[in-house]
Amino acid sequence: MYTRDYRDLIGGGLLLLFGLFVGFHALTSYDIGTLRHMGPGMFPAWLGFVLAGIGAVIMVLGLFHPGDRIEPHYRQFIAVILGVMVFAVTVGAFGMIPAVVLLTFAAVLADDKLGVVGAVILAVVLSVLALLIFRVGLRVPLQMFKWPF
């Protein structure tokens, strides 16, 4: 426990920054219009500043109450995000099955419970499952394998 709530300081700060960014971006880049004929910029500009205001309030209040520690699961975060990323990068060029296999290999790095053999078995099972659900079951026209070169 801390005497200040750092979660609220960070969270509120991020909301403040994002709100200000959107507010100013809308004011400067889009037509604001009049209240009667509202342009594309008016609603986002208002809301951007409202969000910035609320973010500031959350930050200030965070100074006055205790909060829990922030404990990120770095390893799980990196493995899962990496898994989704390799899928996105490979699926277009190599097809679904290689993308699923690479996704599985990246994802299992988040936990120690599966060894190399386990990961290979899981990758095979998931590939078959993907084939059955999406290709056979839902008849989605996805290419299983591709060779881009």
């Binding site: 899962v80 898994g83 989704v84 996105a88 994802a107 988040a110 599966l114």
Partner: peptide, 18 residues
């Protein structure tokens, strides 16, 4: 869960891509 979550991710990725 350690078998389940890669399956969930697989479903998410293919689902969105499809």
């Amino acid at each position: 869960y350690h078998v389940l979550y890669p399956a969930v991710l697989m479903f998410v990725c293919i689902g969105v891509y499809s």
